[in-house]
Amino acid sequence: MRKFLLRRLLLMIPLLLGISFISFVIMQLAPGDPASLNIGMNSKIDPSYILKLRQSYGLDDPLMVQYWHWLKRICLLNFGNTFRDNRPVIAVIGERLPATLLLSGLSEVLLFLVAVPLGVMAAYYHNRWYDRFISIFSFVGFSMPSFWFALMLMLLFGVWLNLLPVSGMTSTEAEYLPWNDRILDLISHLILPLIVTTYGGLASISRYARTSMLEVIRQDYIRTARAKGLSETQVIFKHALRNALIPIVTLMGLSLPNLIGGSFIIETIFSWPGMGRLGFESVLSHDYPLLMGIGVITALLTLLGNLLADLAYAWLDPRIRYD
Protein backbone atom coordinates (compact mmCIF):
# COMPACT_ATOMS: atom_id res chain seq x y z
CA MET A 1 0.00 0.00 0.00
CA ARG A 2 2.78 2.41 0.91
CA LYS A 3 4.54 1.68 -2.36
CA PHE A 4 1.34 2.31 -4.30
CA LEU A 5 0.81 5.59 -2.49
CA LEU A 6 4.35 6.71 -3.23
CA ARG A 7 4.03 5.84 -6.90
CA ARG A 8 0.75 7.68 -7.19
CA LEU A 9 2.29 10.75 -5.57
CA LEU A 10 5.23 10.64 -7.97
CA LEU A 11 2.87 10.33 -10.93
CA MET A 12 1.23 13.58 -9.88
CA ILE A 13 4.43 15.54 -10.51
CA PRO A 14 4.41 15.47 -14.34
CA LEU A 15 0.68 16.18 -14.32
CA LEU A 16 1.20 19.20 -12.08
CA LEU A 17 4.03 20.41 -14.29
CA GLY A 18 1.77 20.14 -17.32
CA ILE A 19 -1.06 21.95 -15.57
CA SER A 20 1.21 24.75 -14.42
CA PHE A 21 2.64 25.13 -17.91
CA ILE A 22 -0.78 25.28 -19.54
CA SER A 23 -2.09 27.85 -17.10
CA PHE A 24 1.10 29.84 -17.60
CA VAL A 25 0.69 29.79 -21.38
CA ILE A 26 -2.96 30.84 -21.12
CA MET A 27 -1.90 33.84 -19.07
CA GLN A 28 0.49 34.84 -21.83
CA LEU A 29 -2.46 35.06 -24.23
CA ALA A 30 -3.78 37.92 -22.18
CA PRO A 31 -3.79 41.27 -23.91
CA GLY A 32 -2.55 44.20 -21.84
CA ASP A 33 0.24 43.42 -19.42
CA PRO A 34 0.17 43.96 -15.66
CA ALA A 35 2.56 46.90 -15.89
CA SER A 36 0.16 48.95 -17.99
CA LEU A 37 -2.76 47.77 -15.86
CA ASN A 38 -1.00 48.86 -12.70
CA ILE A 39 -0.50 52.34 -14.04
CA GLY A 40 -4.13 52.42 -14.96
CA MET A 41 -5.58 55.52 -16.52
CA ASN A 42 -2.72 57.86 -15.79
CA SER A 43 -1.45 58.95 -19.21
CA LYS A 44 1.07 61.46 -17.93
CA ILE A 45 3.26 58.74 -16.51
CA ASP A 46 6.94 58.72 -17.38
CA PRO A 47 7.73 55.96 -19.98
CA SER A 48 10.93 55.07 -18.11
CA TYR A 49 8.82 54.22 -15.09
CA ILE A 50 6.81 51.76 -17.21
CA LEU A 51 10.07 50.22 -18.37
CA LYS A 52 11.25 49.87 -14.79
CA LEU A 53 7.97 48.31 -13.76
CA ARG A 54 8.14 45.86 -16.66
CA GLN A 55 11.63 44.89 -15.57
CA SER A 56 10.62 44.43 -11.97
CA TYR A 57 7.86 42.07 -13.05
CA GLY A 58 10.28 40.29 -15.38
CA LEU A 59 7.94 40.88 -18.32
CA ASP A 60 10.74 41.37 -20.83
CA ASP A 61 12.34 37.97 -20.24
CA PRO A 62 11.78 35.10 -22.71
CA LEU A 63 8.69 32.97 -22.06
CA MET A 64 10.54 29.90 -20.82
CA VAL A 65 12.66 32.00 -18.45
CA GLN A 66 9.55 33.60 -17.03
CA TYR A 67 7.97 30.18 -16.61
CA TRP A 68 11.05 28.79 -14.90
CA HIS A 69 11.16 31.69 -12.41
CA TRP A 70 7.48 31.33 -11.77
CA LEU A 71 7.73 27.55 -11.30
CA LYS A 72 10.59 27.88 -8.82
CA ARG A 73 8.46 30.19 -6.74
CA ILE A 74 5.22 28.20 -6.84
CA CYS A 75 6.98 25.10 -5.57
CA LEU A 76 7.21 27.09 -2.33
CA LEU A 77 3.55 28.14 -2.77
CA ASN A 78 4.77 31.64 -3.48
CA PHE A 79 2.43 32.95 -6.19
CA GLY A 80 3.56 36.54 -5.78
CA ASN A 81 1.33 39.43 -4.84
CA THR A 82 -2.10 40.21 -6.20
CA PHE A 83 -2.42 43.25 -8.42
CA ARG A 84 -5.52 44.61 -6.78
CA ASP A 85 -4.30 45.04 -3.21
CA ASN A 86 -0.71 43.87 -3.42
CA ARG A 87 -1.05 41.12 -0.84
CA PRO A 88 0.44 37.62 -1.15
CA VAL A 89 -1.77 35.49 -3.41
CA ILE A 90 -1.55 32.49 -1.13
CA ALA A 91 -2.85 34.54 1.81
CA VAL A 92 -5.81 35.80 -0.22
CA ILE A 93 -6.62 32.25 -1.38
CA GLY A 94 -6.14 30.99 2.17
CA GLU A 95 -8.83 33.38 3.38
CA ARG A 96 -11.30 32.15 0.76
CA LEU A 97 -10.51 28.44 0.66
CA PRO A 98 -12.29 27.41 3.92
CA ALA A 99 -15.63 28.73 2.67
CA THR A 100 -15.30 26.72 -0.56
CA LEU A 101 -14.16 23.60 1.24
CA LEU A 102 -17.04 23.91 3.70
CA LEU A 103 -19.58 24.22 0.90
CA SER A 104 -18.17 21.52 -1.39
CA GLY A 105 -17.33 19.13 1.46
CA LEU A 106 -20.83 19.32 2.90
CA SER A 107 -22.37 18.98 -0.52
CA GLU A 108 -20.29 15.83 -1.26
CA VAL A 109 -21.60 14.32 1.99
CA LEU A 110 -25.17 15.35 1.26
CA LEU A 111 -24.83 14.12 -2.32
CA PHE A 112 -23.78 10.71 -1.08
CA LEU A 113 -26.57 10.52 1.50
CA VAL A 114 -29.29 11.49 -0.96
CA ALA A 115 -28.18 10.19 -4.35
CA VAL A 116 -27.21 6.67 -3.29
CA PRO A 117 -30.56 5.77 -1.65
CA LEU A 118 -32.39 7.27 -4.66
CA GLY A 119 -30.38 5.17 -7.10
CA VAL A 120 -30.55 2.01 -5.00
CA MET A 121 -34.33 2.29 -4.65
CA ALA A 122 -34.63 2.83 -8.39
CA ALA A 123 -32.62 -0.32 -9.06
CA TYR A 124 -34.61 -2.29 -6.50
CA TYR A 125 -37.89 -1.25 -8.09
CA HIS A 126 -36.45 -1.68 -11.57
CA ASN A 127 -38.92 -0.62 -14.29
CA ARG A 128 -41.67 0.13 -11.79
CA TRP A 129 -43.20 3.58 -11.36
CA TYR A 130 -40.63 4.63 -8.78
CA ASP A 131 -37.80 3.82 -11.18
CA ARG A 132 -39.57 5.73 -13.96
CA PHE A 133 -40.01 8.68 -11.65
CA ILE A 134 -36.30 8.71 -10.80
CA SER A 135 -35.44 8.52 -14.51
CA ILE A 136 -37.61 11.52 -15.28
CA PHE A 137 -36.15 13.33 -12.30
CA SER A 138 -32.62 12.72 -13.52
CA PHE A 139 -33.49 14.03 -16.99
CA VAL A 140 -34.80 17.17 -15.36
CA GLY A 141 -31.67 17.37 -13.20
CA PHE A 142 -29.32 17.04 -16.18
CA SER A 143 -31.14 19.76 -18.06
CA MET A 144 -31.76 22.45 -15.46
CA PRO A 145 -29.17 25.23 -15.45
CA SER A 146 -27.86 25.44 -11.88
CA PHE A 147 -27.77 29.24 -11.86
CA TRP A 148 -31.41 29.39 -12.87
CA PHE A 149 -32.29 26.86 -10.18
CA ALA A 150 -30.44 29.13 -7.73
CA LEU A 151 -32.38 32.18 -8.91
CA MET A 152 -35.70 30.39 -8.56
CA LEU A 153 -34.81 29.25 -5.04
CA MET A 154 -33.84 32.81 -4.16
CA LEU A 155 -37.14 34.02 -5.55
CA LEU A 156 -39.12 31.40 -3.64
CA PHE A 157 -37.37 31.27 -0.27
CA GLY A 158 -35.75 34.68 -0.18
CA VAL A 159 -38.31 36.96 -1.75
CA TRP A 160 -41.74 35.33 -1.64
CA LEU A 161 -41.52 33.31 1.59
CA ASN A 162 -38.82 35.51 3.10
CA LEU A 163 -37.44 32.52 5.01
CA LEU A 164 -33.76 32.41 4.14
CA PRO A 165 -30.97 34.90 3.41
CA VAL A 166 -29.97 34.91 -0.26
CA SER A 167 -26.42 36.20 -0.13
CA GLY A 168 -23.20 36.06 1.83
CA MET A 169 -22.05 33.69 4.51
CA THR A 170 -22.99 35.66 7.60
CA SER A 171 -25.39 38.45 8.48
CA THR A 172 -23.95 41.90 9.06
CA GLU A 173 -24.71 41.81 12.78
CA ALA A 174 -23.33 38.26 13.16
CA GLU A 175 -20.20 39.40 14.99
CA TYR A 176 -22.22 40.62 17.94
CA LEU A 177 -24.24 37.43 18.33
CA PRO A 178 -23.52 34.66 20.87
CA TRP A 179 -21.78 31.64 19.30
CA ASN A 180 -24.86 29.42 19.05
CA ASP A 181 -26.77 32.10 17.14
CA ARG A 182 -23.76 32.58 14.94
CA ILE A 183 -23.85 28.91 13.97
CA LEU A 184 -27.57 29.15 13.22
CA ASP A 185 -26.86 32.23 11.14
CA LEU A 186 -24.19 30.36 9.16
CA ILE A 187 -26.51 27.39 8.63
CA SER A 188 -29.30 29.59 7.32
CA HIS A 189 -26.86 31.11 4.84
CA LEU A 190 -25.60 27.67 3.86
CA ILE A 191 -28.93 26.06 2.99
CA LEU A 192 -29.60 27.55 -0.45
CA PRO A 193 -26.04 27.32 -1.85
CA LEU A 194 -25.80 23.79 -0.47
CA ILE A 195 -29.03 22.72 -2.18
CA VAL A 196 -27.84 24.12 -5.51
CA THR A 197 -24.34 22.59 -5.39
CA THR A 198 -25.70 19.22 -4.31
CA TYR A 199 -28.46 19.16 -6.88
CA GLY A 200 -25.86 19.61 -9.63
CA GLY A 201 -24.42 16.15 -9.01
CA LEU A 202 -27.59 14.46 -7.85
CA ALA A 203 -28.87 13.36 -11.24
CA SER A 204 -25.65 11.73 -12.40
CA ILE A 205 -24.63 10.11 -9.11
CA SER A 206 -28.07 8.59 -8.55
CA ARG A 207 -28.06 7.34 -12.12
CA TYR A 208 -24.69 5.68 -11.58
CA ALA A 209 -25.83 4.23 -8.25
CA ARG A 210 -28.80 2.71 -10.04
CA THR A 211 -26.67 1.18 -12.81
CA SER A 212 -24.12 -0.15 -10.35
CA MET A 213 -26.81 -1.64 -8.10
CA LEU A 214 -28.57 -3.23 -11.09
CA GLU A 215 -25.33 -4.96 -12.02
CA VAL A 216 -24.70 -6.23 -8.50
CA ILE A 217 -28.26 -7.48 -7.96
CA ARG A 218 -27.86 -9.82 -10.93
CA GLN A 219 -24.74 -11.47 -9.49
CA ASP A 220 -24.69 -15.07 -8.34
CA TYR A 221 -23.81 -14.26 -4.75
CA ILE A 222 -26.99 -12.25 -4.39
CA ARG A 223 -28.99 -15.21 -5.61
CA THR A 224 -27.07 -17.36 -3.11
CA ALA A 225 -27.84 -14.93 -0.30
CA ARG A 226 -31.51 -15.02 -1.18
CA ALA A 227 -31.48 -18.79 -1.57
CA LYS A 228 -30.05 -19.36 1.86
CA GLY A 229 -33.03 -17.49 3.25
CA LEU A 230 -31.60 -14.12 4.29
CA SER A 231 -34.09 -11.35 4.79
CA GLU A 232 -34.45 -8.90 1.92
CA THR A 233 -32.98 -6.04 3.99
CA GLN A 234 -29.89 -8.11 4.71
CA VAL A 235 -29.49 -9.05 1.07
CA ILE A 236 -29.82 -5.47 -0.10
CA PHE A 237 -27.92 -3.60 2.58
CA LYS A 238 -25.30 -6.12 3.60
CA HIS A 239 -24.51 -7.95 0.39
CA ALA A 240 -25.59 -5.80 -2.51
CA LEU A 241 -25.16 -2.20 -1.37
CA ARG A 242 -21.59 -2.57 -0.12
CA ASN A 243 -20.45 -3.85 -3.49
CA ALA A 244 -22.50 -1.38 -5.44
CA LEU A 245 -20.94 1.51 -3.54
CA ILE A 246 -17.39 0.84 -4.70
CA PRO A 247 -17.62 2.53 -8.12
CA ILE A 248 -19.68 5.35 -6.60
CA VAL A 249 -16.87 6.28 -4.22
CA THR A 250 -14.47 6.63 -7.16
CA LEU A 251 -17.01 8.67 -9.02
CA MET A 252 -17.45 11.07 -6.12
CA GLY A 253 -13.71 11.67 -6.10
CA LEU A 254 -13.72 12.27 -9.83
CA SER A 255 -16.66 14.66 -9.59
CA LEU A 256 -14.54 17.07 -7.55
CA PRO A 257 -13.40 19.22 -10.51
CA ASN A 258 -17.03 19.64 -11.57
CA LEU A 259 -17.93 20.68 -8.07
CA ILE A 260 -15.15 23.26 -8.00
CA GLY A 261 -15.96 24.37 -11.55
CA GLY A 262 -19.59 24.80 -10.57
CA SER A 263 -18.63 26.83 -7.54
CA PHE A 264 -17.51 29.72 -9.76
CA ILE A 265 -21.05 30.50 -10.77
CA ILE A 266 -22.89 29.39 -7.63
CA GLU A 267 -20.60 31.29 -5.26
CA THR A 268 -20.96 34.36 -7.46
CA ILE A 269 -24.76 34.21 -7.37
CA PHE A 270 -24.95 33.73 -3.62
CA SER A 271 -22.03 36.11 -2.91
CA TRP A 272 -20.43 33.19 -1.07
CA PRO A 273 -16.95 34.38 -0.03
CA GLY A 274 -15.15 31.34 -1.46
CA MET A 275 -12.46 30.63 -4.01
CA GLY A 276 -14.93 30.36 -6.89
CA ARG A 277 -16.11 33.92 -6.44
CA LEU A 278 -12.52 35.04 -5.95
CA GLY A 279 -11.71 33.37 -9.26
CA PHE A 280 -14.53 35.16 -11.02
CA GLU A 281 -13.49 38.51 -9.54
CA SER A 282 -9.90 37.99 -10.59
CA VAL A 283 -11.02 37.05 -14.11
CA LEU A 284 -12.86 40.37 -14.32
CA SER A 285 -9.95 42.38 -12.93
CA HIS A 286 -7.28 40.52 -14.96
CA ASP A 287 -5.38 39.69 -11.80
CA TYR A 288 -2.91 37.20 -13.31
CA PRO A 289 -0.99 36.10 -10.20
CA LEU A 290 -4.25 35.45 -8.40
CA LEU A 291 -5.70 33.57 -11.38
CA MET A 292 -2.63 31.36 -11.70
CA GLY A 293 -2.69 30.67 -7.99
CA ILE A 294 -6.33 29.66 -8.13
CA GLY A 295 -5.72 27.49 -11.19
CA VAL A 296 -2.84 25.64 -9.56
CA ILE A 297 -4.61 25.21 -6.20
CA THR A 298 -7.76 23.96 -7.96
CA ALA A 299 -5.77 21.44 -9.97
CA LEU A 300 -3.98 20.34 -6.81
CA LEU A 301 -7.31 19.78 -5.05
CA THR A 302 -8.56 17.81 -8.06
CA LEU A 303 -5.51 15.58 -8.09
CA LEU A 304 -5.88 15.07 -4.35
CA GLY A 305 -9.52 14.11 -4.84
CA ASN A 306 -8.57 11.56 -7.48
CA LEU A 307 -5.88 10.15 -5.22
CA LEU A 308 -8.31 9.82 -2.32
CA ALA A 309 -10.80 8.10 -4.62
CA ASP A 310 -8.13 5.60 -5.72
CA LEU A 311 -7.11 4.91 -2.14
CA ALA A 312 -10.71 4.46 -1.05
CA TYR A 313 -11.22 2.10 -3.96
CA ALA A 314 -8.27 -0.06 -2.93
CA TRP A 315 -9.40 0.01 0.69
CA LEU A 316 -13.01 -0.91 -0.07
CA ASP A 317 -12.34 -3.63 -2.58
CA PRO A 318 -9.84 -6.23 -1.40
CA ARG A 319 -9.85 -7.78 -4.87
CA ILE A 320 -7.92 -4.78 -6.12
CA ARG A 321 -4.23 -4.91 -5.33
CA TYR A 322 -1.87 -2.29 -6.52
CA ASP A 323 1.68 -3.49 -6.68
Binding site: I19, P257, G261, F264, H286
Partner: peptide, 23 residues
Protein backbone atom coordinates in the same frame (compact mmCIF):
# COMPACT_ATOMS: atom_id res chain seq x y z
CA UNK B 1 -3.59 11.03 -23.51
CA UNK B 2 -1.32 12.76 -20.96
CA UNK B 3 -2.46 16.06 -22.47
CA UNK B 4 -6.05 14.92 -21.95
CA UNK B 5 -5.27 13.96 -18.34
CA UNK B 6 -3.82 17.40 -17.70
CA UNK B 7 -6.81 19.19 -19.21
CA UNK B 8 -9.18 17.05 -17.14
CA UNK B 9 -7.57 18.38 -13.95
CA UNK B 10 -8.49 21.97 -14.74
CA UNK B 11 -12.23 22.61 -14.41
CA UNK B 12 -13.37 23.34 -17.97
CA UNK B 13 -15.58 26.20 -16.90
CA UNK B 14 -12.68 27.96 -15.17
CA UNK B 15 -10.53 27.48 -18.26
CA UNK B 16 -13.28 28.97 -20.43
CA UNK B 17 -13.73 31.90 -18.03
CA UNK B 18 -10.01 32.70 -18.09
CA UNK B 19 -9.71 32.61 -21.85
CA UNK B 20 -12.90 34.64 -22.36
CA UNK B 21 -11.64 37.28 -19.97
CA UNK B 22 -8.55 37.69 -22.12
CA UNK B 23 -9.91 37.52 -25.65
Amino acid sequence: MRLVDILLCIPTFFLILMVIAFV
